[in-house]
Amino acid sequence: MFEYCSNSDSLANLQWLACYLTTLKHQSLYWSILTVLLLLAVTAPLAIALGLSGALARRSPFAVVRSLGWGYTSMVRGIPDLIFFLFVPLAMDQLLEYVRHRVLCPQETGPVWIGHDFVVCSAAKLPLGPSPEWVHDTYGFILAVVAFAIVFGAFCANVIHGAMNAVPRTQLETARAYGLSPRQVMLRVHLPQTWIYALPGLSNVWMILIKATPLLFLMGVEDIVYWAKELGGTKSARFSDFPHGDWRIYYFTGLLVFYLLFTWVSQIGLKRLTDKVSRGQATMAGGKGGA
């Protein structure tokens, strides 16, 4: 990074630190923060979309759809999220490869689970064997995003379902009395008011989501936990220009501070947002200060 870094033996303390913190591996650590932010940016809208679908499914006139919605919203209450984070990427990968195996290699009709092995033809592999590394990384990241979206979609579905029930019944009855169709009642009266009731719960889900991002590490993504472990471990002078002892305490302190700042800033931002959208609403928060 800096020119004086080329000769690592003759560095003063501050220069040593500047060089140490800008090694290639440290740059990977900084980039992995972007991985966390990207995960949040992609997962949040997906989870809200899935949550809305789940909540609407629970109000469906069809019993099958209703019970699917109930199952989706209830599963995260009884099952630890970590089970989904381990299960979903593996299951998705096998399902996709199974479908591709059946479509791309129709000549192979044998079973894919042979004994205790999962065997598909090489054309069905995901990603394909000779793909460059970034394709493998991206594929792993997408599977992780799907797992996060499913789990946090279920959390959101719980919140949105509760919020839809909290919208005053009289509002909906009035809309119906004006002759609005069920679809119009939902789109023009019910849903717009749902969000204000859902916001406190969704804020909470956002905080849970932030605190779940280090679990990316368990899905084989090279995230900030991976790099903190990697960089913090003892480095001997034989393999590193910057030998040091066990520094994992410092690296994990750094991660703690990062997450504390992130949740703290989020909390302030969400408080402002809640205050802003509550103004003029027919809720306790909206009625405050007189209108």
Partner: peptide, 20 residues
């Protein structure tokens, strides 16, 4: 604030590093 604001997963890693 510290224990509610940070992920439990990181707390495990941090405390383990201290205890070791």
């Amino acid at each position: 604030f510290i224990f509610r604001g940070s992920p439990l997963f990181i707390q495990f890693f941090f405390v383990y590093a201290v205890l070791v």
